[in-house]
Every structure is written in structure tokens, then in C-alpha cells.
Simulated scan of single mutants.
Amino acid sequence: MIAGFGGPERPSSFACGDLLARMATIDEDAMPATVEIPSEQVEALDRIAAREHMSREALVQSLIAEFVSRHGSASDLDRFFGNWGDRPIDGLELQSRLRAEW
């Protein structure tokens, strides 16, 4: 196994050129992260990674990228900020009024 490429062994077709291509695309702004994942899910990730001929790390990175592209684009987040702006009452005023009912 190649250090830093966790997961199952690469197929015999793995060559130095593949390693150099992967190293050339390393994101210097990447955030190292430690995440606790139940062993059953780790085993499932390993099976999927082996089937896809990729490392567990690469699989997790691609899954995160897919999730973010579906759920977290900046334009989606921007849509939700300021949602209260068209309401006739100030949010803080409404909050105070509701708490007074308690």
C-alpha cells in the first residue's frame, strides 16, 4: 500500500505515472480531517473503493464533493440569508412578543 493513499491495495496496473498525476492534483488548501466512522461503514467504503479501483481517501473525497455540489453551493446558502426581510414585523420584535406569551 502506498503511504497516504489508505484503503485496499491498488490493482497491479497502478503505475508511477498514476501516482505522479495524483500528486500533481493535490489541493494545497485542503483541510486534513479526522472523522469517526462506524466499522461497518468503513468496511462498506473499502468494498466500494476496491470495486471502483480507488483508495478509501479518494472515495470519501469524491463523496464529499458530490454532497457539497448537491446541497451546499454558495448560491443556495445566499438564498436563505435575509429571508425575513420582506416581513412587515421585525424578527426581534416578534421574538420578544412570542416570549412574552410564555
Results as ranks from 00 to 15, higher is better:
I26T: 13
S12E: 15
E40N: 07
F14V: 03
A33D: 13
F81C: 01
E43S: 08
A21N: 15
P32C: 11
F14M: 09
A50L: 12
A24E: 15
E36C: 05
Q41F: 02
S13I: 04
E66G: 06
E101P: 00
A30R: 15
L45Q: 03
E93M: 04
G85V: 00
S75Y: 08
I89H: 11
P32M: 07
I37H: 08
I37C: 03
R87T: 03
R79D: 10
E43C: 04
S62M: 11
E93L: 00
L19Y: 08
E101D: 08
E57M: 00
L59K: 14
I48Y: 00
A15Y: 01
L19A: 14
D29F: 06
R99C: 08
E57N: 10
M1Q: 15
L19H: 09
P38C: 06
T25G: 04
S75E: 15
G85C: 03
A30V: 06
G82E: 02
F81M: 01
A21E: 09
V42M: 07
P88N: 14
R10S: 02
A30P: 09
A74T: 14
F80P: 02
A21Q: 11
M31A: 07
D18I: 06
T34Q: 10
D18V: 03
N83L: 00
A100V: 12
S62D: 14
A100K: 15
R79G: 01
F5W: 12
R10A: 02
L98W: 11
V68L: 05
M54T: 13
L19F: 14
A30T: 13
D29C: 02
S73W: 10
D86L: 03
E9D: 13
S12K: 10
L77F: 04
E52L: 01
G4F: 03
E28D: 08
Q61K: 14
S73Y: 08
R79L: 08
G72W: 15
S12Q: 09
E101H: 05
A44C: 03
R51H: 04
R51Y: 02
L77P: 14
P88M: 03
E36L: 05
G91L: 03
L59Q: 07
L94G: 01
F81L: 05
I89Y: 09
H71F: 01
G91C: 00
F80S: 06
P88T: 06
D90W: 12
Q95C: 00
R56I: 07
S13D: 10
S62P: 06
R79F: 07
G6D: 11
E66K: 05
W102A: 10
I26E: 08
A58V: 04
R56K: 11
F67Q: 11
A44F: 01
W84R: 04
A49N: 02
E101I: 00
M1K: 06
D78C: 03
R47P: 00
A33Q: 15
N83W: 06
W84T: 02
E57H: 09
S96L: 05
I2D: 14
E93D: 13
G17V: 06
F67N: 13
S55T: 13
D78V: 05
V35L: 12
G6S: 13
A65V: 04
I26G: 07
E9T: 10
A58I: 01
G91E: 05
S62C: 12
R79I: 02
E52M: 03
S96E: 10
S96K: 12
G72R: 11
R79E: 11
